[in-house]
Design a protein around this nucleic acid. Structure first.
Length: 229
DNA sequence: CCCCAGGGAATTC
DNA sequence: GAATTCCATGGG
């Protein structure tokens, strides 16, 4: 069976630095490409406006494709509502309209209010605190901690669990925390590695390891139990 | 345990 | 071209 380090190498060789987490309002600015992806690893602490955008988009992308999130971010940017202060002050009814494309907009508008209020009350959020906020589960909390605050955490999202289970690295349909714990137990544990790995897994899952896998040309095919499909 | 909030792209029928 | 699927979190 392939080990996690070798899989990372294969993905890195194929895709290079993935540039996650995209920051919408910095498109085509210094350090970002035309889609808002980073050109190189950022220095921490991040500027506050980048932290705010990561938090907002982490909530918006729950159970939702990134293309739908981008439309909502575009609307929020146009309305000047991409900071936690603006989210806290903005009328709830407007917020709901602006993020409509991200789905579940009634709930997500409430979630944005709650997480922005929480973050304005603490200096640096911890995982327990984030999880105590209504609307923030383990995946959203880890995304915020990994990308906004450079805490070394594995994002065991749907892509990662699907890819890892097909490679035999995780059992099928393992729940989030159990999957994250397994990976934490066998990886180096620096934030750069976890950020890159998450971005690489997303790129790989979208190109090859889809729901219906495209095994032709897959760079992990020699190591995959599904080889031959 | 189940269903629902909810949109839009991808996929399947 | 219509129907189904996907996706995080929490409420009922």
């Amino acid at each position: 069976m392939i080990d996690v380090y070798r899989f990372y190498e294969i993905l890195w060789d194929r895709y290079g630095y993935p540039g996650w987490w995209p920051v919408y309002s910095k498109k085509s600015l210094e350090g970002f490409d035309s889609a808002g992806y980073r050109l190189y690893l950022p220095a921490y602490p991040l500027p506050q406006d980048e932290i705010d955008q990561i938090v907002i988009s982490a909530v918006l992308t729950q159970n939702t494709a990134w293309t739908n999130v981008e439309k909502a971010l575009s609307e929020l940017s146009y309305k000047g509502c991409l900071t936690k202060e603006a989210v806290m002050q903005g009328p709830l009814s407007d917020l709901k309209m602006w993020i409509r494309s991200s789905g579940c907009y009634n709930q997500k508008a409430e979630k944005l209010k709650k997480i922005c209020n929480y973050l304005s009350c603490v200096d640096t959020p911890d995982r327990k605190g984030l999880l105590s906020v209504w609307g923030i589960g383990p995946e959203t909390a880890d995304s915020i901690l990994l990308y906004a605050y450079a805490e070394p955490l594995f994002i065991a999202d749907a892509y990662a669990r699907r890819v890892f289970s097909r490679l035999g690295l995780l059992p099928l349909r393992m729940e989030y925390q159990a999957a994250a714990d397994v990976v934490h137990g066998c990886t180096p544990g620096d934030w750069e590695w976890y950020q890159n790995f998450h971005g690489l897994i997303v790129a790989f899952a979208k190109e090859f390891c889809k729901k219906k896998p495209l095994c032709s040309g897959c760079p992990a095919r020699p190591y995959c139990s599904r080889a031959g499909l």
